[in-house]
Design a protein around this nucleic acid. Structure first.
Lengths: 250, 250
DNA sequence: CCGGATTTGTTCGTATGTATA
DNA sequence: ATATACATACGAACAAATCCG
């Protein structure tokens, strides 16, 4: 049972200045999580309890909870209860993916920008990566790349290994935010521009590009690593440019 | 008047497999925006109209709209109507800020990770920045830095100029995503760790650090720019380390 | 300044679907 | 299979904000 004392609104007549009740409820639920030092997976009070404790109707509480669920601050399981969420980048992915769909009808701008961000992040961390990666991490990177190679030769899909590779590449940084951003940007790319840079005849080339990245990390060659990363994203940029040219004709 | 044809659920008895009605409504509203090629600021149907067109109750429509509003895909104005949103990074800021408050009670981990991301992004784009910045952009950067200097000497706050400076620094990239991420990360930093790296006796040093960045851009010195950016973030890292040490004592 | 129309904000009661024991 | 607890969904009513004549 969590402590609700202090999270009670103490009569919202005090400060209702323009801010809606739903926003107040959302803020109080967030404060509840912080105050009680709750962790992802912990059980939150039921909707009914929140209504009573926070002095709001079921609708207001539900709308607030849904907003927090969209941010992955809470997680709702039907017929089960409401829990503290995993704090993932789900909201960023959904937001960027929607913008990607919009830009896909026009100039592919967001996707091109996204590739620049992904490449620059990986290149920017190149020095730190080669300096702090452990032998185990380099082995894993190499194993993922060779796995992509063998599956590419059979014409099989390598999309899941691709995601794992880019996460494994950034793992030595010991930076959770970078890992989550890397995964989120990859997800957006996969949702909005599926198959961009992995058309069937390019599969082997894509796998080789990853293999060269793994080799440069193992060789502790930061300059070569940056070049290998640039080479990895080059065909993707070319494909995007082709799509843009095709879109202009319409 | 927007076209709602095709966005109608055609009887949701067909596909109700596990996915909640609210999610279906949210998806249909997004499709409505894409289908009609609507732009930020365009007026969406009223709640009542959406209920009728999508065959859902007002509660379900409202919850869906609130989720989309949290992602800044739509914007709701009380007593006015619902409009297409600005597609900002508001959700990312709120999500990261919440995680920042949680980590502030423990290890300041998110803030430290965030500084690494901000520094690496700016350093990673250094070459492109010096290569593509226009004289006007360099002048603006220098003007912002000197403005920070004069106000710092008077002991005045320079936080607003700081945000403008970091946005102006990235402006030459012509990459909207980078600009929005830069602003979002800055906002999270300001919300979670206010005054970190801008304590009153450090104000002049902070302004000088920005001045050196502007000078390196003007000199088209990418290597020096990277060093200047690293120097800019150094006192912030030191302050964070001090906070971590202080937190450990408790 | 006012009043009416429109639109979103909030509440309540009720019924239904879902998961656990 | 039954009972309980919980989230999901609906509809009607009233409150508050905004705009306009």
């Amino acid at each position: 049972m969590v402590d609700l004392d202090g999270a009670i609104s103490a009569g919202r007549s005090a400060r209702t200045r323009g801010v809606s009740l739903r926003e107040q409820v959302a803020e109080q639920i967030k404060q509840l999580i912080i105050r009680n030092r709750m962790r992802p997976g912990d059980l939150l009070p039921t909707e009914g309890e929140l209504c009573e404790e926070l002095g709001a109707s079921r609708s207001s509480v539900r709308e607030a909870v849904k907003v927090l669920a969209a941010l992955d601050i809470v997680e709702v399981r039907h017929g089960h209860g409401t829990y503290v969420g995993k704090m993932s980048m789900a909201a960023l992915v959904e937001s960027l993916a929607f913008r990607g769909f919009l830009s896909r009808d026009n100039d592919y701008r967001l996707i091109a920008d996204l590739v620049d961000v992904r490449a620059t992040l990986e290149q920017g961390f190149a020095e730190t990566l080669v300096a702090s990666s452990t032998p185990e991490q380099r082995d894993r990177l190499h194993a993922l790349a060779t796995g992509m190679r063998t599956r590419a030769e059979r014409g099989e899909d390598i999309i899941d290994l691709d995601r794992d590779f880019h996460l494994a590449l950034m793992a030595p940084l010991d930076n959770d935010l970078v890992l989550q951003l890397t995964g989120a940007f990859w997800d957006v790319h996969a949702i909005v521009a599926p198959g961009l840079g992995s058309s069937s005849e390019q599969l082997v080339q894509t796998a080789d590009a990853h293999l060269r990245i793994a080799e440069r990390v193992a060789a502790e060659d930061a300059v070569g690593l940056r070049e290998a990363i640039a080479a990895h994203y080059q065909p993707i940029r070319t494909n995007i440019a082709a799509h843009i040219a095709r879109a202009r004709e319409d």
